[in-house]
Amino acid sequence: MAAAAAAGAGPEMVRGQVFDVGPRYTNLSYIGEGAYGMVCSAYDNVNKVRVAIKKISPFEHQTYCQRTLREIKILLRFRHENIIGINDIIRAPTIEQMKDVYIVQDLMETDLYKLLKTQHLSNDHICYFLYQILRGLKYIHSANVLHRDLKPSNLLLNTTCDLKICDFGLARVADPDHDHTGFLTEYVATRWYRAPEIMLNSKGYTKSIDIWSVGCILAEMLSNRPIFPGKHYLDQLNHILGILGSPSQEDLNCIINLKARNYLLSLPHKNKVPWNRLFPNADSKALDLLDKMLTFNPHKRIEVEQALAHPYLEQYYDPSDEPIAEAPFKFDMELDDLPKEKLKELIFEETARFQPGYRS
């Protein structure tokens, strides 16, 4: 834990890192770190609560700039109880001085990944967590956004079992017609939660990839272990087919990539493993919904509104309290091709509203 900075004593240090967030945020305490930044909790002297502050230093890398800009653009436009918001952003007053960006968010005690390492969940908890994931996802999908990296560590939890989806750095506007060349190379989302079509096709992607990830998360809540822990690309596919069985001819016809289709045709026939054999203690309604989410063919996979209306979630289902976005989200430009200098300018502009004396 960093010592509390005395008023006016300059930035606090946390594990050798400068955290320049005073005077409003003090009493910093280390939480963890990701690929390009550290997260601390801090005391907000204005709202009198502890908050989470993520320090991001992305400006050396085009990919990190892209992810940072995506996350900020999306989260500043989203407003939903099951999606983490941005409360404040701290950065230098000029673009030349801006080396880091500090993002202030609600402090959540833990995440689903940490929880599943230590606790076996009751059916009631599984049901409530799944409902909140789908409630947040309904809003995301209504904005025409794909999260693309749903996994237990991106689901934040607090002691009252509130759940918030975080990390929109890989999110995209849904565009089933656009052929994202190089899709697989830039697709760094965790393999275990990846839909089979991501490994088999490169053309376009749809909201059904997020539903697949939610199915993987439900299976993990039922058993405290990942359902498809593939060691590499082909191993991942083999794990999936080992449980779902061989795809039907109709399902194979959806695979545009001939090499991928021929690979699947070359494999020995596998039978589907019954879900109640894998999860003998699970609620039968939970397994019915799991089956509809972990469907090989993305066109037959359940959609988020149908999933919310499934009998497993009937005690929570309330369409009048499951809000959607006001308007579909649009990125003005494809960020993939922009140089990091341009992305830095866009991050600077996007964060201006939090600067003292800002006038829109």
Rank of each mutant, 00 (worst) to 15 (best):
H141R: 08
S57V: 09
W192K: 03
Y25C: 04
F129S: 05
L313C: 15
F168K: 05
R261D: 02
A3G: 15
L308V: 14
G242T: 15
M293K: 00
M199A: 05
H299Q: 04
A2N: 15
V173C: 07
C40K: 13
M13D: 06
A219S: 01
L107R: 13
L313S: 04
L170N: 06
P323G: 13
V104K: 06
Y358N: 06
P152T: 02
Q236C: 05
K48W: 10
T190Y: 05
G204T: 12
Y193T: 04
G357Y: 15
M13Q: 05
H232W: 07
D124I: 13
H61Q: 02
D175E: 01
R91F: 12
E349M: 14
G34F: 05
G22K: 10
F329Y: 01
G85K: 13
D111S: 07
Y263G: 10
N271A: 13
I133Y: 07
F183Y: 00
P280N: 10
M333W: 09
Y113K: 03
L107M: 03
K259L: 03
K114E: 04
R191E: 03
E350A: 15
K285E: 03
K344T: 10
K164D: 10
L264F: 11
Y312K: 03
P298Y: 15
Q17E: 11
N87H: 09
G10V: 00
D337Y: 00
F59Q: 10
L289F: 09
L115H: 14
S360Q: 02
I209Q: 01
K117M: 01
K207N: 05
Y64W: 07
C161I: 08
N257Y: 00
N27M: 12
A174D: 07
L115P: 10
A143R: 09
N123F: 10
D124M: 11
Q306S: 14
M293E: 06
H80E: 14
E186T: 09
V49T: 12
K117W: 10
A35H: 06
D288S: 13
R148N: 04
L155D: 05
E12A: 09
A7M: 12
A352S: 03
N281C: 12
P93S: 05
N27S: 08
A92N: 15
D20L: 09
F348Y: 02
G8C: 12
L308Y: 12
Y131N: 00
K300F: 11
I227Q: 12
Y233V: 03
L289Q: 01
Q105E: 09
N281S: 07
L163G: 12
H61D: 06
I211F: 00
A7W: 11
S57K: 13
A92V: 07
E341D: 00
E250I: 14
G245K: 03
K138G: 08
E326C: 12
T160I: 05
D336G: 07
D124L: 09
T63Y: 05
N47P: 12
S246Y: 15
G215Q: 01
A3T: 04
I140A: 06
L258C: 12
H147R: 01
K272G: 09
L294G: 04
N297G: 09
P274L: 06
Y128H: 13
L267I: 15
K270R: 03
Y263C: 03
L150N: 07
L115F: 14
M333P: 06
N123A: 10
V39K: 03
N27V: 12
P323D: 14
M38A: 04
N224W: 08
S223D: 07
D321M: 12
A2Y: 13
I103G: 08
L290P: 00
K340I: 11
P11Q: 01
Y312D: 03
G242Q: 10
P328E: 07
C65I: 07
N144L: 06
Y25A: 10
E305I: 14
D251H: 11
M199R: 05
K117A: 07
